[in-house]
Design a protein around this nucleic acid. Structure first.
Length: 270
DNA sequence: CCCCATGTTCGACA
DNA sequence: GTGTCGAACATGGG
């Protein structure tokens, strides 16, 4: 489920706990989501600590307690956050639950592909500080993207746009939306995309990022029908631009939807 | 029973 | 060493 806008939406689910003291922690350390995380420390440090801040960066989230305990959350494929009533009963796939006076901040993940991290330090942990520039930020530039496309010149553009080291927060639906708006066939070899098309692709990445944050990041509203989004999920969808049938296949290792009549750009000839 | 899933990582291979 | 690709991870839904 979660790409950058959904992650922002879920991060806000825990913000009712901001300024509140954690009374109790319930976690299931057996579950894969904790991997190397120090579960004992989470259980001993967080009780008594106050949530001071929560932020997202692409698909990553971080929550700060007492200005020195950093809780990292990645939602994986099926994770979500919620804030539940004080009377809440913990469910099967609730792996981390933080109790406050006003209710429970809960991390749920049926598929266990998510990840929890925990660090104690004055400044943000390394894994957070070293994340690549956010899409739309000052350092997320066209030249930087072009250098990345050169390095990944042999891979198809669908796979390249999914790489978090350059495009933090893009996921399957956003990449399909970006390529559709750019009129680029998803199987196009990254290194064969011409200069003009690269500039167009860059601007569509920014556009889809801001559209997603506006429509989904705040209230998880329904994307409008003129996006690819509403048409891409099932076989037999129709392209909002051309009225022709959309195609679906595995490209770059992921189920990909595109409009063959609309996405005609396939790169320069060698 | 089968296939599929908005993600990441690891290992094989070129 | 570098880059690409597919399998594996664990569970539930159609």
């Amino acid at each position: 489920m979660p790409e950058l806008a959904e992650v922002a939406f879920y991060k806000n689910k825990w913000m009712p706990a901001q300024g509140l003291k954690i009374k109790q922690v319930a976690l299931n350390q057996q579950v894969r989501v904790f991997r190397k995380a120090p579960t004992t420390e989470i259980c001993t440090r967080l009780p008594g600590a106050t949530l001071t801040m929560g932020e997202t960066h692409g698909k990553q989230m971080i929550f700060l307690f007492d200005d020195r305990f950093w809780l990292g959350v990645h939602l994986g494929m099926a994770g979500r956050l919620s804030f539940e009533a004080t009377t809440y009963k913990i469910q099967k796939h609730d792996h981390l639950c933080l109790e406050t006076d006003k209710g429970w901040a809960v991390f749920t993940d049926t598929r266990h592909f998510g990840r929890i991290r925990f660090n104690e330090s004055r400044s943000a942990p390394e894994w957070w500080a070293r994340l690549p520039p956010k899409i739309g930020s000052e350092h997320f530039t066209l030249p930087r993207m072009e250098a990345f496309l050169r390095r990944r010149k042999g891979a198809c553009i669908k796979a390249v746009l999914l790489m978090q080291e350059q495009f933090p927060g893009l996921g399957n639906w956003m990449v399909d939306e970006i390529l559709w708006r750019s009129k680029i066939h998803p199987a196009t070899t990254a290194g064969l995309i011409g200069e003009k098309k690269r500039a167009e692709l860059f601007s569509k990445i920014l556009e889809v990022e801001s559209d997603a944050m506006r429509v989904i990041g705040k209230n998880w509203g329904d994307p409008p029908d003129h996006w690819l989004f509403n048409h891409r999920w099932k076989d037999g969808g129709t392209c909002p631009k051309t009225g022709t049938t959309l195609k679906r296949a595995t490209i770059g290792g992921r189920t990909t939807c595109w409009s063959p009549k609309h996405q005609t750009y396939r790169g320069l000839k060698k």
